[in-house]
Structures are given as structure tokens and as C-alpha cells.
Design a protein around this nucleic acid. Structure first.
Length: 214
DNA sequence: GAACCGATTGCCT
DNA sequence: GGCAATCGGTTCG
């Protein structure tokens, strides 16, 4: 029997650390989303990529802040959503200390809660590919550019921000037994950097795992 | 303003 | 395996 999935949002300090560390530790966590007019859905994160700051040529933060990438320079634990290839939305978690750009692209999940609703949004039933890819993941959860900037984490206890989970958040979950590491997918710059991390044993990856591991 | 390009996906051959 | 779809962001003139 699998345990009841955790729902409590991770604290903001989880995301305030080094982007590569956050990326690895997001594997196994539960991504929750509550689309407008829909019930909460969740998936177990099995594939992520780290995008660093101005020193990472493949990052949208390369070359300093722009209107699009400004969110990556802001406080950690927020959603960075952008439109890819004019068609697909991609969801990132902003990482690192404020002022220091960084984000983790959520590339794939395994369906956990609300699979039927997610499949309906996708227009396809196959659970293997339901969330296997950054665009598919967002489509399954009903995430689009309107979600850009939403908090993903619980705010600091001393803050004045509302503590209730919003439309999207991340909770703890069962970590993978083994993590595979490899180069990021689909980029044309910094192709050698091994910043992609996946649950080696998951069958819901967007592509086969990289050969590296730890 | 115009041109170019992309952290993708699904369908076609 | 190849390639079209499709549009916001960024850069350039």
C-alpha cells in the first residue's frame, strides 16, 4: 500500500539553496496543482534540469535580467512559467538566494492524484506519457503563463503573505533509489553541462536517463 | 517595427 | 527519424 501523498508545501528555505542541490532533492517530491474549477492533482517529480544564473549560457537568466527572466532573479520558491516554441508551457521553480538567478525546470512526473482529470486535459489516456515532458506536465496540470510568479513554497513564518496553498505547490515525497545524471535536453548552448537529473528507475521520463549516476 | 529563434510535441514518412 | 506548428522574447536596424 502506498502512503497517503503529502500535501504540505515545502518551506521557502528549501528552494533558497544551491540550484543543483535543489534540483536533485526535488526528485521524488510531489507537484500539486489546483487548476481553475478543478480538483487538486499531483504527480511525483522524476525528471528535472537545473538552470543557473548569468554564468549559464543555456539559462534564460544569461546576460542579466530581462522582463521575462526577472522572476528568476527574485525570491526563491516561486513559479517561473514560460511559453516554449509558441505552443507549450514549461514550469520552473525559482531557486537560490534573492538577487541570484536560478531555476529548476520540472520535466516529468508520475501521476499520483487526479490522473483521470489530467488525462482529460491532455486529451490522452496513457499514464506513462501523461507527464513525461515539460510541456506535457503543464498541460496535464492546466498550467499556463498566467501562473508565472505564483508561490510554490510556504512563505516564511514571520511573513505577512497568506499561508494557504495556492494553485500550485510542492510537497515532500519518496526520494528515488538512484539518480541518473546527464546533459540537458533540447538546448543548443552549454550542451556538455550535466545538469539533468532523473529517477533512474522511473518509466515516466521524457527520454532515457543519462549514463551518469550517484 | 521587423527578423530570428527556441529549456517541445505529435504526426508523417 | 524527420519536420511542421506557432508566438513571445530578444535583438537588431
Amino acid at each position: 500500500m502506498s502512503p497517503r501523498p503529502a500535501r504540505r508545501p515545502l518551506p521557502r528555505r528549501f528552494f533558497a539553496r544551491d540550484t543543483l542541490t535543489v534540483a536533485r532533492e526535488l526528485l521524488g517530491c510531489l507537484l500539486w496543482a489546483r487548476p481553475a474549477g478543478g480538483e487538486p492533482c499531483a504527480g511525483r517529480i522524476v525528471e528535472v534540469e537545473a538552470y543557473l544564473g548569468e554564468d549559464d549560457p543555456a539559462s534564460h537568466a544569461a546576460g542579466g535580467p530581462t522582463p521575462r527572466s526577472a522572476i528568476m532573479f527574485g525570491p526563491p520558491g516561486h513559479a517561473y512559467v514560460y511559453l516554449s516554441y509558441g505552443m507549450h508551457h514549461c514550469l520552473n521553480a525559482v531557486t537560490g538566494p534573492p538577487g541570484r538567478a536560478g531555476a529548476v525546470l520540472l520535466r516529468a512526473f508520475e501521476p499520483v492524484v487526479g490522473e483521470e482529470a489530467m488525462a482529460a486535459r491532455r486529451g490522452r489516456a496513457d499514464s506513462r506519457t501523461l507527464g513525461a515532458g515539460p510541456g506535457r506536465l503543464c498541460q496535464a496540470l492546466g498550467i499556463d503563463r498566467a501562473w508565472n510568479g505564483l508561490p510554490l513554497a510556504a512563505p516564511p513564518a514571520s511573513g505577512r503573505e497568506p499561508s494557504a496553498p495556492g494553485r500550485v505547490w510542492i510537497a515532500t515525497g519518496p526520494p528515488p533509489a538512484a539518480i541518473a545524471v546527464g546533459p540537458r535536453i533540447g538546448i543548443r548552448k552549454a550542451v556538455a553541462s550535466p545538469f539533468r537529473f532523473c529517477d533512474r528507475d522511473s518509466r515516466c521520463l521524457s527520454r532515457p536517463p543519462g549514463s551518469g549516476s550517484f
